[in-house]
Design a protein around this nucleic acid. Structure first.
Lengths: 272, 272
DNA sequence: TCAAAAGTGTTCAGGATACACCCATGT
DNA sequence: ACATGGGTGTATCCTGAACACTTTTGA
């Protein structure tokens, strides 16, 4: 595996990997803040630091599938939304002189899905506002910042928020998500009109009782047929999720060894 | 260079390259349509087909710089705007079994800059609406479609249009660009108010006379300090362009041989 | 019956649209 | 003088923000 000296490595074809920024709502803090899982690096460089989950790219998968799979094998999460964020490269990423390119996806998981996940030693959820004091590997801090910025600015009514909050929700819950994400205060009456007016919310018929006051109607998100939103996004829902899961599992059985290397994003270039 | 059989190649790390979709206004058609340069492939696969200009990624350059450089070495164009579009990968791109990832940028050049370019045998400009009848390599047809869609939808007033039309322009010219890009009809009086109101247009003092009617005031585009637009975009202007040019030229002198391989995007994997 | 949240109505300001109109110029 | 495009004014519509208000529930 050893490459030659640094100037020789500059000529090498770059390594490529996928990484994923997974965002969810922190269920503990009641006023809704975002948090995300990071994995602890078990190799140099940045040994012991926290990094985005990631993995390799394989020729027989889509990039999005590779990202999805990397996520599964490292965190057991099944995101309901996955979209390519950006490809990162350049000289400052070339640790040890070998060029490194990461194709970064961002994912959203609902609170229910995030609950699935049993916290392991080397994977942990961090609230957004506690990242500052953390040792973060590579340029992953910037990448996370970029993902958060994207979430806040590219937020299109009401799909993104619906994916974060879970399959069903009251309008107040959805409202809370918006306020948490944008950091602004939104007039609740206007908010509900806007949401309902989008034609993408459907009443489930249920109501949620949670206090000595009028119960709230429960809605679900139903995407409209038009409005393609982001063409290369990868909204996983219902049958498509099942299909993808099956496919990923089949592959995983065949070569578990490969899949387990998921957490070692970028590690190949550092076995010096 | 030879790899083993197909199943062995599946395990190889993917090849990575940059490609660029360069968009400009066709000066011939007076009602303003878009066109773009493509390069003819001189190797298998898709020998003789037309492909996006592209090149390799080097560890000592930014991805954007790699794209810029690939563009220079293949087409002599100096785009005034360069932004990452998307990274493409996946099984359908694995010609010969070797995984291939392309990081695609899109670029805008003004009519003046497009004029610099002397048309060579293996590089030619094609109007947007003549692509259908063309033999296009790889999935570059889809990529072009995606870039055009992005141009049409992500158009933010008035920066993008200003970059297409050139350094100075009349409001009618700018108006024409908008209509050409969006394919819609825009009320001219309202358009001019909106543009002027944006505070990003500055009168040059010149006027353009071109008929037996009142001459039009000539404007230039002046970006405002706030409004960061796209964080990872790469707007090249003035001093930054010069600096980049110098750096690229210095590198090019040192290893011209490498730079000249720019047009052979993806070709490495096909030397069977 | 009262607190608390669900949900509705109404007003208002600012922006976008549509289009009528005047202004400057070359022939 | 008149045709042609440059440029301005203005009525109207629509959306979003602000906020007063009514309704429904549990205690």
């Amino acid at each position: 595996m050893g490459y030659g000296n640094v100037s020789e490595r500059l000529k090498q074809p770059p390594q490529v990997g996928v990484s994923v920024v997974i965002l969810a709502l922190d269920p503990d803090s009641e006023h809704g803040r975002l948090w995300l899982p990071l994995v602890r690096r078990v190799r140099q460089p940045f040994l012991g630091c926290w990094a985005l989950p990631g993995g390799d790219i394989r020729a027989d998968r889509t990039l999005a599938q590779s990202a999805y799979e990397a996520l599964e094998s490292t965190t057991d999460l099944h995101p309901s939304y996955l979209e390519q964020l950006h490809a990162f490269g350049g000289p400052d990423r070339s640790h040890g002189g070998l060029p490194m390119v990461s194709i970064v996806y961002w994912a959203l998981v609902g609170q229910a899905e995030a609950g699935d996940f049993a916290e392991a030693d080397n994977v942990r959820w961090f609230p957004e506002d506690e990242l500052a004091s953390l040792d973060i590997a590579f340029d992953h801090r910037e990448i996370i910042a970029y993902a958060l910025d994207r979430l806040r600015t590219r937020i299109e009514y009401p799909d993104i928020a619906a994916k974060l909050v879970g399959p069903t929700f009251t309008l107040r819950q959805l409202h809370g998500v918006y306020e948490a994400i944008t950091g602004t205060v939104l007039d609740l009456p206007n908010f509900r009109r806007k949401m309902l007016g989008s034609g993408e919310l459907e009443e489930t018929g249920d109501v949620l009782r949670e206090g000595r006051h009028r119960p709230a109607a429960v809605y679900r998100y139903v995407p409209r047929k038009d409005a393609p939103a982001h063409p290369y996004a990868y909204a996983i829902s219902g049958s498509r999720l099942a299909e993808l899961d099956a496919r990923v599992r089949a592959i995983a059985q065949r070569d578990t060894a490969d899949a387990e290397r998921g957490a070692d994003d970028l590690s190949a270039l550092t076995t010096e």
